[in-house]
Design a protein around this nucleic acid. Structure first.
Length: 372
RNA sequence: GAGCCUGUAGCUCAACGGCAGAGCGCUACACUGUGGCUGUAGAUGUUGAGGGUUCGAAACCCUUCAGGCUCC
């Protein structure tokens, strides 16, 4: 039911097709994040309009509200949110650590308090898989622990625990129509990363994720960890770099052999008034755009850029109109998806490697603000 | 025409004889497996105007301008 064909390679970069029960995914792919069974501010129709192919949703959030059994009874996540293409759910591991103020972790699982009402809950690997089976995404994730990469001693403990939990996640899985991906941890320790990559690869899951990056370490550390991990992963399985990222991170990640990415950044920045454009990140609330009649990005083919001026978008932001978030989300997601489309064609025609410096030069200053 | 009240940052208002301030707004910055947040930094004043008293005035006195209320 799940297979991954590599259609072209440029050194470590690969283009491929991952088949799922809801259609084929062309990789490299960027997945918009739809935490609460919606990519914030966008309809499924709008997502189709920007050629989104994979959407991520969240186990932690949907378990707390409206409840995974309710989603199951409403026909599963695809039907519930009316997204009929490939979907992925997170395991809830990350949110237990990033959102819950108080939590108690032991080798069996995590007891935590809801960020919504403070009520107490418990996740174990088995519980996470059960929830994700109720939700019904095509790709589901092993329950893991994402620790602070700067805490080396604790990261070792958390990584070992993540390995035990990965095995338990595999054993808990019952549905054949879902692909369970394992997650490599190990912080910024090369030896621990290598050990984790080998262990997770040994479980022979249909895909492997690299977690615990873009959580506070430097770009150089992320780069170094990918250099350690990716060569230790099987060629014939998709590699998923969780929570990344900026246009620059996507280009670098693909060059290092990553196939799947997800990130809140394009939609979060959209709601916080920033736009990805080739010359840099624009803060569209800035007064300089008040009378700017140009589109966000003259080279972009998205609905926002084909239709509206910067002046209008700034007006919507200043007036706190919801449409601002929608228009900027359409643009930011389209910008990243368009980069993916270009790179897939570059890998296919063999030009990707030589184009990386040009792509980076074009997009690397999106990590911070542009001057225009 | 007479009496009273009010004029302080873009807005609403503090300070009532001793460094002119707050909230909001404004100008920027940050945001990477999402709390439509949040956090950080910054700018802005002939205290309506003019004169006087005082070591010192947004404050007290005089004149004047503007707005409001009341009375004739």
């Amino acid at each position: 039911m799940f297979s991954f064909y590599i259609t072209a390679k440029n050194n470590r970069a690969r283009a491929g097709i991952f088949t799922t029960p809801h259609g084929d995914l062309q990789t490299p792919v960027f997945a918009p994040v739809g935490t609460q069974a919606t990519v914030k501010t966008l309809t499924p129709e709008q997502l189709k309009g920007i050629n989104a192919s994979l959407v991520l949703s969240n186990t932690y959030h949907l378990y707390l509200r409206p409840g995974d059994e309710l989603v199951r009874d409403m026909g599963g996540l695809h039907n519930f949110m009316q997204w009929h293409d490939p979907m992925l759910t997170d395991s809830g591991g990350f949110q237990v650590f990033s959102l819950s103020k108080t939590r108690k972790i032991d080798d069996d699982g995590v007891t935590f308090k809801s960020h919504i009402d403070g009520s107490t809950h418990r996740f174990t690997p088995e519980k996470s898989i059960q929830i994700q089976e109720n939700l019904g995404a095509d790709i589901i994730m092993a329950f893991d622990e994402c620790s602070d990469p700067n805490d080396a001693a604790y990261t070792k403990i958390a990584t070992q625990r993540t390995h035990l939990w990965a095995e338990r996640s595999v054993n808990a899985k019952t549905r054949a129509d879902q692909a369970l991906f394992g997650i490599v941890q190990g912080g910024v320790n090369a030896d621990l990363r290598a050990e984790s990559a080998k262990f997770i690869a040994s479980l022979d899951m249909p895909g492997i994720a690299i977690g615990g990056l873009s959580v506070g370490e430097t770009k150089e550390e992320m780069h170094d960890m990918l250099d350690v991990v990716v060569p230790l992963l099987p060629e014939n399985k998709p590699r998923y770099l969780m929570g990344v990222g900026t246009p620059e991170d996507l280009i670098n990640g693909i060059a290092q052999g990553v196939d799947i990415f997800d990130c809140v950044l394009p939609t979060r920045l959209a709601r916080h008034h920033s736009a990805f454009v080739p010359e840099g990140r624009l803060n569209m609330m800035n007064a300089v755009f008040a009378r700017d009649a140009r589109p966000l990005d003259e080279t972009c083919d998205c609905y926002t850029c084909q239709t509206f001026t910067r002046a209008y978008i700034r007006h919507l932001i200043v007036a706190k109109e919801l449409l601002a978030g929608t228009l900027l989300s359409i643009h930011n997601l389209r910008a990243l998806i368009r980069i993916m489309e270009s790179i897939r064609s570059y890998i296919a025609d063999g030009s990707f490697e030589t184009r990386v410096p040009v792509l980076l030069d074009q997009w690397s200053n999106n990590a911070k603000r542009a001057d225009c």
